[in-house]
Design a protein around this nucleic acid. Structure first.
Lengths: 208, 208
DNA sequence: TTTCTGCCGGACAACGTGTCCGACAACATG
DNA sequence: CATGTTGTCGGACACGTTGTCCGGCAGAAA
């Protein structure tokens, strides 16, 4: 029970510091090649220089740790492309530039990204988290596609909901793989390719 | 040690029958909503009407079970699209038709597909298996794209390797999700959308 | 010095995997 | 019928993981 007559001795920042240590330790272990699934709390705590039982004073469980690691993963990257709109004549170039920013952002956090994708497959909480992140992109793509169709610039028979999912899922998956397994000097090339695919495959797809 | 002076009493088909029982039981449990990860050998053996220790007489471990469940997943589906080639004028329609066949094939086996995707995230063996399956598709797409570029029908500045990965990963992911979460009456529409996306986004992408 | 706080370290129960082994029933063979 | 072989059972085992709990200790505030 907390004392009322006396200010808690807890350093205001101490708690945050330990938390940051644990997060950093986890990233370090992931970067060293560990799979999040095979990474035990024991190992994480040791790397962070903390008792295993202490870990549970800071995180309810491994899922919450991953959730916190991944916190801004989607939000930030969304802000990097959310502003794009299909306005000629520079739309394609701008889309490629936006995607390049996203790729670079993810490259910095590629191990966390890989962990999220890995765990999303069997953990409901992480799965829903990632679905939600992708949802932002999908909704935005859908919105833009519908508008383009209304303006007659995208074909009316394009299936906007499906096209959105194809674009985002495909794009994300490729970016994730690229960023984990391929060198940074191909980033721009991949960004251009994805952009062109989305542009001519959906936004400016010729009428069937 | 097996007796030599005497023919083994083992029914020729009994072993195969038990194996089939286990495979069927697993599919049943997956279809009932279980996650492959959370599905214990205990549970599978019970459902198959076999002792847990007997399971290990038939399968080295859970991974081998999944591998056997997934055996033809890729090969068969590849045979459904492997024959397609971008020959005008019916190429787009034929691509959509091929993809529809793939979608229907996967729909029948959607729970196994979901399990493979789930486990591929953290199990090396399954991951490599799936990568190999996708590799067939990617290689084929790449081959076709390069030929189309050589013939001047696809733009020379298209990045064939990346475009292949975008197409296949995106397509597979969307198909997998569609087949697991959406009704069968949208199958044709999804097939058409993916086909159009690949056709106009890569094979017949306008020159930049 | 006293009192409170937070962390340690270790034990615990529950569960899962893969291995091993003795028991037993079915069955072909002599 | 007696016998030996085979395959399965069922349970124990070692090992590793997760998340909880609690006694004890060190250090800082009063």
């Amino acid at each position: 029970m907390a004392s009322i007559t006396r200010r808690p001795a807890a350093d205001p920042s101490r708690r945050a510091a330990v938390e940051a240590d644990v997060l950093a330790a986890t990233e370090r272990l992931l970067a060293a090649g560990a799979t999040y699934t095979e990474l035990g709390v024991q190992r994480i705590a040791a790397e962070a220089g903390v008792a295993r039982s202490t870990f549970y004073l800071y995180f309810r469980d491994k899922t919450e740790l991953l959730l916190r690691l991944a916190a801004q993963l989607g939000d930030v990257s969304f802000s990097l492309v959310g502003g794009w709109s299909p306005t000629e004549p520079a739309a394609l170039d701008e889309l490629a530039a936006s995607l390049l920013r996203v790729i670079r952002f993810y490259r910095d956090r590629r191990h966390v990204l890989a962990a999220v994708l890995e765990v999303a497959g069997y953990d409901r909480t992480i799965g829903e988290f990632w679905e939600e992140q992708l949802g932002m992109f999908i909704d935005r793509a859908h919105e833009l596609l519908v508008a383009e169709q209304a303006a007659g610039r995208a074909p009316a028979d394009l299936n906007a909901p499906t096209a959105s999912r194809v674009m985002i899922w495909g794009g994300m998956r490729v970016i994730a793989d690229h960023v984990v397994n391929r060198p940074a000097d191909e980033d721009a090339s991949v960004a251009r390719e994805i952009a062109a695919n989305e542009w001519f495959g959906a936004f400016r797809r010729p009428a069937a």
